[in-house]
Design a protein around this nucleic acid. Structure first.
Length: 589
RNA sequence: GGUCCCGUGGUGAAGUUGGAGUUCACGCCGCCCUGUCAAGGCGGAGGUCGCGGGUUCAAGUCCCGUCGGGACCGCCA
């Protein structure tokens, strides 16, 4: 399908000019980039639109300046011998005999448009986002995002999914993330909540017999912002009936692979799977970055009969080996760096951190070497595969602490920058239903939302040994970023009540808080499951950006403000009165 | 709620032990310049050193507070 780019004001796009156009008289519209003056009657202008830039040869008496909007009619001609610019796609040609019409003049921009903008204060970029977005980088990012959305839609529809829009105004369901509230004018004192996700709606669509639903949905969460988190973000949200987790994983994989292909031009290999237990055990985190190894090495049995007190009673002892070959700087850490690593490990919850520097012939340089037997020292080197110059870090603690601390250190020491290396997608499956016991309430803490179906083999232990119960839940991870998660849902009302009871939600509570959601399940809910993943995060990684703000047209700052619009703002007291709202005096500090 | 980093002409930076708003690059304005493409040359303008307080003869610099931005922890079922 060819796109018609000619309009009433222009015949072509700047970035499309090629040798094939030589001899044509064209009219282009765009913004003035750089101007290079060469005397009374010669100057070069870079004319820019979204498609790229093309050089115009003009008389130097023409007064057009940076970012003025102009319309140029001229003749496409080959550049003279020796003046071809191979750095730009239009570099073989230029526009000559130019007639210029100024459509709008402009003040000088507050920052250069023809650069990436990495060194410009982000506050200034956001204040002038409409200028910031003129730069090639942002044009690419936003268009990449559109291409990803488009590929996802195509893929979902070709797999039989139907797009359904769900409400933004819904009742508050005080579970999970903090909600944005919207006051009701008709019922002062009552509020709508904006959806953290369309979770409840999409499950009702399954009850409604829609079979396969999808939506590229805006989700809103009033939680603190991060590089990978905004108040509002987009998810591919999907749900399907009469499926098991393999069906869901297969269909979502198809959509993600289609999106990745649309973005990068090459199709990633089939997405591998890893159990949650393996992810924790070998990478110390439930969102492992598989672009680098430095896997956690099991050493517990090596110290079964050790005399070293710190290791003797530990449930789990593991190590990572920081290889000098790949990480020369980190492996050669001096005493200060090693002390800092130890502090870091303690802050993360470990009792301590043992470091060993491997010398020639397996000799170990470490404050604790004298407490370790010769056999133990040999085994450490053997199991970790360490060679001379490597640094070995050991944590001995409970299994979960040992894993999570080493996993964090592994990321700290080895993780490549976002824009580097291959794309490593992985499905992490068999998440536990509960992630520990809340020390205050003594209740199991849910790992996901409370509608996740327990693994059929484990349902018997729901009450007797909840922590051993796996959920039919799965996360999609890309290069250490959690893209999204999904699960097979509970469709049997009685099982749902059992899970609620485990979470300390009585039948009455459940009816009160989720009644509108649970009632429909009495009327024949099909077995169903689904998934949702973050489009902002996927786009950021595929764009090589380490921050989702770079792929969002108008993002908020970390404190939730918008430097361009100044949102959030005060409102007229009349507006509040109409809503039945009176403000508290500001807190006294 | 917490930890850490940053704030100096339009933009980005330097500013030492406290000594005159000092410096550099880009941009901007003017002049010169006929093949540049980050053009080049010459000249010029442009400042509440985020804000408030304190120490001092003297603060961009030291101290306290505050505002704004960023990274992270908590939080994100």
């Amino acid at each position: 399908m060819s796109i018609k780019n000619s309009t009433a004001l222009r015949t072509h796009l700047c970035g499309d000019m090629r040798s094939a156009n030589i001899g044509e008289v064209v009219t282009l519209c765009g913004w003035v980039g750089r101007r290079r003056e060469h005397g009374e009657h010669l100057a070069f202008l870079d004319l820019r639109d979204f498609s790229g830039i093309v050089q115009c040869v003009v008389d130097n008496s023409v007064d057009v300046r940076s970012e003025w909007v102009i319309r140029v009619t001229g003749k496409v001609q080959p550049r003279p011998e020796g003046t071809v610019n191979s750095n730009i796609p239009t570099g073989e040609v230029e526009l000559a005999e130019c007639k210029i019409e100024v459509l709008n003049s402009a003040e000088p921009p507050p920052f250069p448009i023809d650069q990436r903008g990495d060194d410009v204060d982000e506050n200034v970029r956001l204040k002038y986002r409409y200028l910031d977005m003129r730069r090639e980088r942002m044009q690419k990012n936003i268009r990449l995002r559109a291409a990803i959305n488009s590929a996802i839609r195509k893929s979902m529809e070709s797999q039989g999914f139907t797009e359904v829009e769900t409400p933004l105004l819904m009742p508050s369901t005080p579970e999970g993330a903090r909600e944005f509230l919207v006051p009701s004018r008709n019922e002062p004192g009552s509020f709508y909540a904006l959806p953290q996700s369309p979770q409840l709606w999409k499950q009702l669509l399954m009850v409604a017999g829609m079979d396969r639903y999808y939506q590229i949905a805006k989700c809103l969460r009033d939680e603190d912002l991060r590089a990978d988190r905004q108040y509002e973000f987009m998810q591919l949200d999907a749900e399907m009936s009469f499926v098991n987790k393999d069906d869901v994983i297969a269909m979502i994989s198809t959509a993600v692979i289609a999106a990745a292909k649309a973005a990068t031009g090459s199709e990633p290999p089939p997405i591998e799977r890893m159990t949650w237990h393996d992810a924790m055990n070998f990478y110390g985190i439930d969102k492992p970055d598989l672009r680098f190894a430095m896997k956690l090495v099991e050493l517990t049995s090596v110290f079964a009969a050790t005399d070293f007190k710190a290791f003797a009673t530990a449930e789990s002892i593991k190590a990572i080996c920081v290889a000098q070959a790949q990480y020369p700087e980190q492996a050669a850490s001096g005493r200060n760096k090693l002390d800092a690593l130890t502090d870091r490990a303690k802050k993360l919850g470990a009792k301590g951190l043992v470091w060993l520097k491997v010398g020639e012939a397996g000799a170990l340089d470490s404050p604790v070497a004298k407490f370790l037997s010769a056999t133990e020292q040999v085994e450490i080197v053997k199991q970790t595969g360490a060679v001379a110059g490597d640094l070995v870090l050991i944590v001995a603690d409970s299994w979960s602490i040992t894993c999570s601390v080493l996993g964090q250190l592994r990321n700290d020491l080895g993780r490549p920058p976002v824009h580097q290396g291959p794309y490593r997608y992985v499905w992490v499956v068999d998440f536990p239903m509960f992630v520990g016991i809340n020390p205050t309430t003594k209740l199991p803490q849910p790992g996901h939302h409370p509608f996740c179906h327990p693994h059929p083999e484990d349902i018997d232990r729901l009450e007797s040994d909840p922590l051993s119960v796996r959920a039919l839940a799965y996360d999609l991870v890309l290069n250490g970023w959690e893209l999204g998660s999904g699960s097979i849902r509970i469709h049997e009302p009685e099982l749902q009540r059992r899970v609620f009871r485990q979470l300390g939600i009585s039948d009455e509570d459940a009816d009160h808080r989720f009644g509108f959601f649970l009632q429909p399940f009495k009327y024949g809910a099909p077995p169903h499951g689904g998934f949702a993943f973050g489009i902002d995060r996927l786009t950021a990684i595929l764009a090589g950006e380490d921050n989702i703000r770079e792929v969002i047209a108008f993002p908020k700052t970390q404190s939730g403000s918008d430097p361009m619009t100044n949102a959030p703002t005060n409102v007229e007291s009349a507006q509040l009165t109409e809503l039945g709202i009176r403000l508290l005096p500001p807190p006294i500090k």
